[in-house]
Simulated assay, not measured.
Amino acid sequence: MTGPVIVQIAEIEVTSSLVRTPVGDFPLSGSIWQVTDHWFAQRSTPAWAKVLAVVGICVTAGLSLFLLLYKEQIPQGTVHVTVTSGTRQYVARVPIRRESDAAAINQQVNYVRSLAAL
């Protein structure tokens, strides 16, 4: 028995002594963790601004088209978390929906790194 899951990063589960992945279990002690960002922020006009611009054309005769200039940043892509133990390796690809998701994943991996160093 390995104990309860302490941290879960995508499909990777970390217990007090093991790293569980879909391809098998690795020992936590001595495992190496890497995080690689593969995401970017795309700028686009939100749907609410498009709707208000179309509806507002009837009321303000074109002034509402300035709403189409409003842009918001939408993160797209993934963060890759790689765990290596000996000759075995596994990569989890975690989709990003907000910029704070990438920071949270980095914090989780840093915590697991500290556990692996014990």
Rank of each mutant, 00 (worst) to 15 (best):
Q107K: 15
R20Y: 11
V91W: 03
V7K: 02
M1T: 15
I105D: 01
I9R: 02
L118Y: 13
K50M: 08
S64M: 05
I57Y: 09
G24S: 08
K71Y: 07
G56H: 02
V7F: 06
L18V: 04
T84Y: 12
I6G: 00
G3N: 00
V94M: 04
S100T: 12
R113F: 03
A92I: 07
Q89V: 12
T21A: 07
W39E: 06
S100A: 14
V79D: 13
S31T: 04
F66D: 09
A53T: 05
G3E: 02
E13H: 10
A116L: 00
V51A: 14
Q8W: 01
G30H: 05
V7E: 09
V79W: 09
F26P: 08
E72Y: 10
E13V: 09
L115W: 01
C58W: 12
Y90T: 04
P27I: 07
I57E: 07
F26S: 08
V7S: 00
R97N: 13
R93H: 15
G24D: 05
V59W: 08
S16N: 11
A41G: 13
V54C: 10
Q107F: 10
R43A: 14
A92P: 11
T60M: 07
S44G: 09
T21K: 00
T78R: 12
V19M: 00
D25F: 06
P4W: 10
S17H: 12
V79S: 07
T78W: 10
V83I: 06
V5W: 06
V91T: 10
V14D: 01
A92F: 04
V94G: 04
S17V: 13
A103D: 11
H80R: 15
V91I: 14
I96A: 08
V5Q: 04
T2V: 11
S100K: 09
G30D: 07
E11H: 15
Y111P: 07
Y111W: 01
W33R: 00
F40H: 13
P95A: 06
L63H: 07
A104V: 06
Q107C: 11
V81A: 00
A41V: 12
V14W: 04
G62E: 01
V112Q: 02
V54E: 06
T21Y: 06
T36G: 15
G86C: 01
A104L: 06
R93V: 08
P95M: 03
S85A: 07
L68P: 02
G56C: 09
N106R: 10
T15I: 05
F40Y: 09
T60P: 05
Q107A: 11
A10I: 02
A102L: 03
A47E: 05
D37E: 10
G30L: 11
S29C: 15
Y111N: 12
Y70D: 10
F40M: 12
S29G: 13
S100W: 14
V19A: 06
I32W: 13
S64Y: 01
C58A: 15
K50P: 03
M1V: 10
S44N: 12
H80M: 15
R97F: 14
G24V: 06
S64A: 05
Q108N: 08
